[in-house]
Nucleic acid binder design. Sequence first.
DNA 1: AAACCGGTCAACCGCTCCGCC
DNA 2: TGGCGGAGCGGTTGACCGGTT
Length: 323
Amino acid sequence: MGRPPCCDEIGVKKGPWTPEEDVKLVDYISKHGQGNWRTLPKHAGLNRCGKSCRLRWTNYLRPDIKRGKFTEEEERMIINLHSVLGNKWSKMAAHLPGRTDNEIKNFWNTHIRKKLLQMGIDPETHRPRTDLNHLMSLSELLGIATNLGNLMGPWGNPLGLQADVTQLAKLQQLQTLLQILNNNSVVNMNNPWLLGNNTLALNPIEAFLSKTNTPHLQNPGLFPQAQGDFSQDISKSWTDIEGGSHAEALGFNNSSSTSQETHNENTLPALVSSSTGANTFNQMDTCKQAQMSSQSPSSTIFEAWEKLLDDEESGSYWKEILE
DNA sequence: AAACCGGTCAACCGCTCCGCC
DNA sequence: TGGCGGAGCGGTTGACCGGTT
């Protein structure tokens, strides 16, 4: 036998608030404080349920609410916070003065989520997308490109097609990278994490670079922008994140696992565990929450990924592939 | 001009958490 | 210790608005 919801009361108004109702609510709270939300509407002369009043106050009428668009800094913070907290909007709001949980949640769902997906990043796991449909379309593209490369040969483009050697090299790299990202187990000599000297790669980018046998990697001068920034940035970001858990990458120093341990586990841990809530958040509670806001903008994989996509020479190319 | 469509965001709903008795 | 009730959280809905056809 449960308690009836407060909003089931007959005759209680629902829907958008009128300016008159807002005035009544603000007047009452400024005089008496919030007090008991359940009894507040009656005392304030409002035909609303307490829950509705609380929501209206906390999400809209509170005097300290910051209005207007989210800044880039706030956006960065939200992404970083989400990578640690998951969908804990109210916890995130606590780190963003003047922003409400509802506002952050809406902003995430309408802007950031979409942006990450376009960048090929799974907004839930904060890892490069590995969903089947996405990879299927990539595989098809890669298959076509590979055939194209075989037809063309190294010296030219007898078919008059627009693809060039640089793009094919990039495709090859991407294919290898995807293989690595999707292969978490290490069992044999085909192990994508195994480097040429029989050591294991520290991160997928290192493995990726070791597997990729393209001229411009050995001689970056040939392709000054095409590969260098990308591999360095993502590799650095991944190392930052992998190095003793992502919490450390976020500025926390009490991690229990070192990068070497992570390395030796021969797995590719997620940037964020599927149960983002409990452990990571407790960790944050007991660690240095304040450091969250001062995290270097360059220390997340999204930004390295974004930089790859924004790269003047290869940007549109990667975007086309990933979208 | 009207219909359609997609994006945005305020508000609702159902559930969990937590303090009190 | 368990039940009750208030508060808060996160997911979802639907109204509104601007752009496009």
